[in-house]
Design a protein around this nucleic acid. Structure first.
Lengths: 215, 215
DNA sequence: GGTTGTGAACAAATTCACAGCG
DNA sequence: CGCTGTGAATTTGTTCACAACC
């Protein structure tokens, strides 16, 4: 198949970062070539899925050989839009927001925490783990100034929808919601959620009902 | 259909906690009855999906009327195994582990943080946000003593697989992994993951490729 | 009339299996 | 020969649409 914008299934998109992390490990180990079999093992999926997924990016493998690690990593980064940093704003400077601001994993993967946002006047103006805390009203200005394009909601549930509206109004089109509530964003904005308690509730279900995968 | 153990699809299982949270809100508002339409709106899905999902639990609705909120909430809690608390152990008393230990949402939803586990001898024996820090070697004893059945991994990536092995060896069959790496558990154990940076990478993808949902 | 519960139709995702090519 | 890339088959999940029932 030729180059250009194929449509990549959502399930595939959410596995690409896992492959990319595996490729980064291989690069560290100076491994130059990898098979779908090996990559599958590292990513915790099966080889057929790896090949299908990678085929959506293009024909970057060599039959009989495998994939060139560095080249594939580059193509994948490009496809994921990770060739440059995406500064993020974390809204909610409470327990979770502070921890996320201090979590090295974001910066490390190209998402530097550019600022914290909180409505509490006692916090505004202070620094938490080196990150400046601003008032929500400053959002439009901060988006402009710091080039923020992603907002992370780490407020209590009741505040989440209002915050989402403010983020969108400030021109932020991508939102990651940690608040334990359903929020909606207008057409054209993107929303992902991380629901911490939900994951435990799902584990609880499977603990009660032995064997989700009975073999 | 009669009562008893139908097989509930995985996609449905991961939506049940969202419905349950919506039902809890309705209970707070003293609403006694709810339609699939209304529940769908609250849960951010469509009504057909709500009805299909709820039908796996049994025929708990009344045609022409809707679902009795309290009764449905009870049945759903029972199905999810949430009629009693599940004490959890958080492994890794670093930045993220501490934040999770202090995150009220776990206890609130029936998952009290019974202890923190860390290999750092300076931390062992101390209390963080009122939670006692123990050494990994104490795990078997803690499982026995505190009735822990779920382990949360909040360590750096390199330590995660080893911790998972220790948790399983101590008799813990449910694991929630926050470390940014793929880990495996033996047959019969359950594993869920929360990958914080992955979610941002997915957002980055859709920011680059306008419109994931083109209408 | 109103709303559930569910077969049937449809869509998405996964896996199989093998042709194609280095 | 070995491994990719991909159509076809299968499985899983979603949506439709309406009979059943209050």
């Amino acid at each position: 198949m030729t180059d250009g914008a194929r449509h990549i299934p959502e399930a595939t998109v959410s596995r690409l970062p896992v492959y990319l992390r595996s490729l980064a490990e291989l690069l560290d180990e100076k491994v130059t070539t990898v098979s779908s079999e090996r990559l599958a093992e590292m990513a915790g999926v099966n080889a057929a899925k790896v090949r299908k997924d990678l085929s959506y990016l293009g024909s970057y493998g060599t039959r009989g050989v495998g994939y060139e690690v560095e080249y594939l990593a580059f193509q994948m980064s490009r496809e994921l839009g990770l060739t440059h940093d995406w500064p993020v704003a974390i809204v909610g400077a409470g327990n979770l927001g502070q921890a996320l601001a201090n979590y090295g994993g974001f910066t490390e993967r190209g998402f530097p925490v550019a600022c914290l946002i909180d409505a509490d006047v006692d916090k505004v103006g202070s620094r938490i783990h080196g990150v400046q805390v601003h008032h929500p009203d400053d959002l439009p200005h901060l988006v402009e100034e710091l080039g923020i394009s992603i907002g992370i909601i780490a407020t209590p549930a009741v505040a989440a929808q209002g915050v989402a509206d403010q983020l969108v109004a400030a021109g932020i089109k991508s939102i990651l919601n940690f608040a334990p509530t359903v929020i909606t964003v207008p057409e054209g904005a993107f929303l992902r959620k991380v629901d911490l308690a939900l994951e435990l509730q799902v584990l609880s279900f499977y603990q009660e009902h032995r064997a989700p995968d009975p073999v």
